[in-house]
Design a protein around this nucleic acid. Structure first.
Lengths: 359, 359
DNA sequence: CTGTTAGCGCATTCAC
DNA sequence: GTGAATGCGCTAACAG
């Protein structure tokens, strides 16, 4: 109110002067971990800071301390509910730890991802979290691994979400196991002939889910022909397109289509309907992830629930944990893929109306 | 490869030494705006940087330059498709400008929002973007305004998205106009009796949409009784709950319910169905925003389309524009609320099966 | 406990 | 052009 028009934010120096103490004392009062400063001084500093509306310059703190309070988060697509839920979890947990999260989108491009990792390193983030699958075979993978390793060597922590191809701390989904159980349940419901609509570029996540589904079917006598696995983009439109192709080609006895993630399943659902069929009756459908939307479509979708937000929280917790191998797996399910340096998050089959019993 | 186990990232100093030049030359070669350095030296520096895998320390640069490359983004809820779409736009545009975006969630709590703004100021972000409506009456608003004003006074740019209550650069949605046109079209379709399900805490956005809807109805003879405006949380569950209450109370001739945003509409849709009614036939429904999901529910929802991602892009562009009043409104629609310091984004009515003609 | 001083990594003025 | 030297805002020894 009294200060006329200072165009630059108050500095620690200003606060110290205002309070009539030294820079060090001001610093200690405001931030110093071990508070060992005369209460009166401390109060004066606090008052001065409040009066000047002082906020510590985080960049300067970072430079002086040699460490930041930043966590960098890389996702494929921010608007995708799968990733935005994970991001929400990361941000929530970060907030609790007084960490700031910076976000970037790879747009599913490995080159771009690598470039972003390089760039983000400039922030010297304490943690780097990479969510989202990459192609199972990818020529930039080596470079990425090198880059991340260098980052870790300099004290950073990297955590991978649902991608076990690299040797870093990792939070895994039970992709394979979840899909396998789904397959079993579906066969239990009476289904015998299946088709799959899945991501096309050899994405690890998609591949694992498909593999698990296959294994489940094999165990209980369901049938999935190779010709009935159609590949498409790992998006809503990809799902729509995949299902449409399947239908146009002729269903020929197929009773249920499994889309390897929910956004695809939702797209597939619309494709089925647009083709004049009644989803759930003429052709059953199941997805994976349990994004919020699937409860509101008609019929509600059978899926495999993954606690997406928890996944994000867990990733950050794992990053911050002193011992990567310990804390992480504590409450993890006995998943198929207990990662040596991380945990696995349980997936749960949720049966809904899109896969009625046809026993 | 050759460097054994340096535990700390390469510094500019290292690069300079490796290249056999001075710190200044290294700095100039790597970043200097006006490049005025011997090509040979420059190349040596570049090579050295590459060899050492050098990345400039952004914090240090920020301290030295007195300015950052950060944009801070505040949203209510990251997992909400409305906000995640906006965020995607901000991130995309930021990326193009070589800016880094940090993200935080207010969880719709004004106190928390204020706290976050204070905290985020520590980053000395170049831009601060606040998305999401606040209560129309809110006792922390003054404090927020002061805080933001102080931030602007120190050279920062704040941009508000869809909240015109404060005197800052603003990107507005055509909330009022969009809702008004929707009302007119709906009456044109033959509807006469309406109900509204809307956000409860007096949110500005919700209020504007309701007001516009009312105005539209009034103009063409639609009827909306005060008793038929039910308030609830501005979320999917809020929409479900609102519609449920409406139905339990007795529809009494109401033909269409307008939910003031799509996530509520989707919830309402499910409530209608769960009540044993057929949405679109027994009770029509319309929303606002055109989030992706509404095309995949049954029936697809009539809504008012808002280019959410563009909104985010626009916000950042507006922040970066030299003259707030110029560039911004260039391609803006002649909205009802042409903000003095920003633009308005056009909203377009999209009629779908959830509101069949009943002429 | 408190104040002084020396960095942190980098940009930039200033002499050369 | 190039290289010292200075400073950015802050923390962390180091002396008093």
């Amino acid at each position: 109110m009294s200060e006329p028009s200072r165009t630059t934010p108050a500095t620690l120096h200003d606060v110290a002067r205002e309070a009539g103490v030294s820079l060090a004392t001001a610093s200690r009062s405001l931030n110093g971990s071990t508070r060992r400063v005369n209460e009166e001084y401390r109060q004066r500093v606090l008052d001065a800071a409040a009066k000047l509306n002082y906020t510590p310059n985080l960049s300067a703190q970072a430079v002086a301390r040699g460490t930041t309070t930043t966590v960098a988060l890389l996702v494929a697509d921010i608007a995708d509910p799968y990733f935005s839920s994970i991001a929400a979890g990361v941000v929530a947990e970060a907030d609790a730890e007084h960490l700031i999260v910076t976000m970037a989108a790879t747009e599913r491009d490995p080159e771009r991802e690598l470039e972003l990792v390089r760039q983000l390193r400039g922030q010297r983030p304490r943690v780097m979290i990479l969510a989202g699958s990459r192609p199972t075979v990818d020529r930039t993978e080596g470079a990425l691994a090198d880059e991340l390793a260098a980052y870790e060597a300099s004290g950073g922590r990297v955590v991978l979400i649902s991608r076990n191809e690299l040797d870093f701390r990792t939070v895994l989904l039970e992709n394979r196991g979840g899909a396998e159980r789904l397959a079993r349940e579906l066969v239990g419901l009476g289904y015998r002939r299946f088709a799959v609509v899945t991501g096309g570029e050899g994405l690890r996540t998609a591949a694992d889910r498909l593999e698990g589904f296959r294994a489940g079917l094999a165990a209980v006598g369901g049938r999935l022909d190779d010709a009935d696995v159609v590949r498409s983009a790992f998006t809503r439109d990809g799902g729509y397109d995949g299902a449409r192709r399947l239908i146009e080609r002729g269903l020929d006895g197929i009773e249920l289509v499994f889309a390897t993630n929910d956004v695809m399943a939702v797209g597939a659902l619309s494709a089925i309907r647009d083709a004049g069929l009644t989803p759930g009756r003429d052709l059953a459908i199941a997805g994976f992830d349990d994004i919020p939307t699937v409860q509101d479509v008609t019929p509600p979708l059978t899926t495999v629930r993954v606690p997406l937000e928890e996944l994000g929280r867990r990733a950050l917790r794992l990053a911050l944990a002193e011992d990567a191998d310990a804390g992480a797996d504590a409450d993890a399910t006995a998943g198929e893929t207990a990662h040596p340096r991380g945990g696995s998050v349980e997936a749960e089959v949720v049966l809904r109306a899109s896969t009625p019993g046809i026993g």
